[in-house]
Design a protein around this nucleic acid. Structure first.
Lengths: 118, 118
DNA sequence: AATATAATTGAATAGATATTCAACTAATGA
DNA sequence: TCATTAGTTGAATATCTATTCAATTATATT
């Protein structure tokens, strides 16, 4: 009975590769953060918001009109993006203007589009 | 009553920017595919699998051991990645070996990590 | 032929999440 | 001061999805 039967429901087939890979693997926290970041781009509404903000700074109402969605749902999503430091905002009068706060979004979109048009 | 009140619960504040942005915007399908693609990277388990496959070709059992998870859950996720053309597989005997089938994954991970270590 | 094992698959479940709705805050202007 | 509007927020709901479990397929071995 190999050691690994205790932690997995199968035997190790290529012990060396498994051990080597585990050794090189980034820690749990890195993968969690990485996945959380990609999850933010992995929603149609948020992808559109980010694309739009990459074109222009916009207030919530503008974004709602561009996406043809309610202010409330846009505001919820902006809150999510803001808390994750992907967008930032400034208040001017009654309006709140949002801009991208991440240099990588554009590059990520480009790579994503390359995959789509493989 | 402005035209936009019919399609959105608020008035347009910057009509020009809104119109210009709508005009430039990629179509619905593009955003859906883009979001679906990022969603695939937006899960800790799948992110680990993709990272691991970027190191070595591996069989299902190996991946399950590296991630310390059941073969079944790994196989489900591999199926998802396979159907999205992000990984491909070859059968050899009883084992099925998986490899990356997308050149952009590595670049995406790098950009994602740059964001994390902002 | 019979057994064992790698992998897949479908159904069920539990947890996550996007949108809606209603209530609220803050700023503007009459 | 009162009414209006931009935006936020919390709760509720409906949908989605990751993992588990059990059953099944396919290959290899005795």
């Amino acid at each position: 009975m190999s050691k690994n039967e205790f932690i997995c429901d199968c035997n190790v087939i290529h012990q060396e590769i498994v051990d080597k890979t585990i050794k090189k693997m980034p820690d749990e926290n890195t993968f969690n953060k990485l996945a959380e970041f990609f999850k933010l781009l992995g929603d149609t509404t948020r992808a559109k918001i980010l694309w739009a903000l990459d074109q222009n700074e916009m207030c919530v109402c503008d974004i709602a009109n561009v996406l043809n969605m309610s202010k409330s749902s846009i505001s919820h999503q902006l809150g999510t993006l803001r808390r994750s430091n992907i967008v930032k905002c400034r208040k001017q009068g009654k309006e709140v203007y949002y801009t991208l706060d991440d240099d990588h979004v554009k590059g990520l979109f480009e790579l994503g589009l390359e995959h789509i048009n493989h």
